[in-house]
Computed example of a mutant assay.
Amino acid sequence: METQDIDYRAEAVNLGGYLAFDETAAGRRPGVLVFHEGLGLGEFAMARARMLAELGYVALAADMFGDRRQARNLQEVVKLVGDLRNEPEKLRARGSAALTTIAALPQVDANRIGAIGFCFGGSVVLELARDGADLKAAVSFHGVLATRMPAASGKVKASVLVCTGADDPLAPPEQVKAFEDEMRGAGVRDWQVISYGNTLHGFTNPAADGSMMRSALYSAQADRRSWASMRSLFEEVL
């Protein structure tokens, strides 16, 4: 497997992504974007990119904060995430810059691109789908479902999969229902929400032990099941 840093830009912001792929594979193959948690692009998202590369995809772990900035505490997470979520056009533009970057890679079939995201990254994936990005699949793992710019009728192209914890305070039942109503109202042809019982926020990350955020706790079972659901969707649409 080959891994390398890859620099790209969104307007005046320098973004530092991380690319993983099987350098021995011939021909173009599907690409998958990986969007990081609120802490920034770090080892967790990079490890997921490598896992996708092992499955035969070209994976680009994107940088949403610029210069691969890392938050050091919850206060910095709130500031970095809030600055983008409060300006959804800027958030979507940065996500789109990553999509443009992966689509231009010589190893990638630009007609077969998916995107996954964790926590904050899950909301990025959903914002791209709402914006009509050329994605075959959009998968959110314990992402925030609320939005300032709901999907317009007929605009979503991607197959949408939301994997959420039933006890996640960042995606409470009323927001899950509002998201489902949004998907119905926008006429999204293929969407699904999987809710894992007795599961909190951050369930895919083994480092989520409740120390930084009490409501974030790893669940090996939900992690395994949600990854399997993603793989099944990718095998079908990519």
Rank of each mutant, 00 (worst) to 15 (best):
M64D: 07
A98C: 08
N198A: 14
G40D: 01
S219F: 08
T164K: 05
E2T: 13
P106W: 15
W227S: 00
V78P: 01
L33M: 04
V13P: 02
G154V: 10
W227T: 01
L99G: 10
E180P: 02
D167N: 12
V156S: 11
D209N: 15
E11Y: 05
G165M: 07
S159A: 15
W227Y: 03
S232C: 15
Y8K: 01
Q4A: 08
A45C: 11
L128Y: 11
Q70D: 02
D131M: 08
T147A: 06
S153D: 14
V77N: 11
S159F: 02
K90N: 09
R130H: 07
N198I: 04
V125C: 08
A26I: 10
Y18Q: 00
P169A: 12
R112I: 07
Q70P: 05
Y196R: 04
K155T: 11
L161F: 12
L105D: 12
L74C: 05
E43I: 06
A61T: 03
E11W: 01
V160D: 10
A62H: 00
A115S: 09
M230D: 02
A59D: 00
E89F: 02
A20N: 02
G56I: 03
H201S: 08
R68S: 05
A129G: 13
G16Q: 05
A222N: 07
R68E: 03
E43V: 12
A207R: 13
A104N: 09
Q175S: 09
R28F: 08
V176Y: 09
A146S: 14
A71S: 15
R92M: 06
G31H: 03
V125D: 01
R29H: 09
R9N: 05
V108I: 09
I116V: 15
E76F: 10
P169V: 12
N14G: 04
A12N: 07
S232D: 15
R68K: 07
A61L: 02
L60E: 08
L60R: 05
A103K: 14
G154P: 00
E180F: 01
Y196K: 06
A103T: 05
R224I: 02
Q107H: 07
R92D: 06
V139P: 00
S229K: 15
E87V: 06
S195D: 00
A133K: 08
M46N: 12
V124C: 10
K157L: 06
T3P: 04
E23H: 11
R9C: 02
V188R: 00
A71N: 09
V160I: 15
R224Y: 04
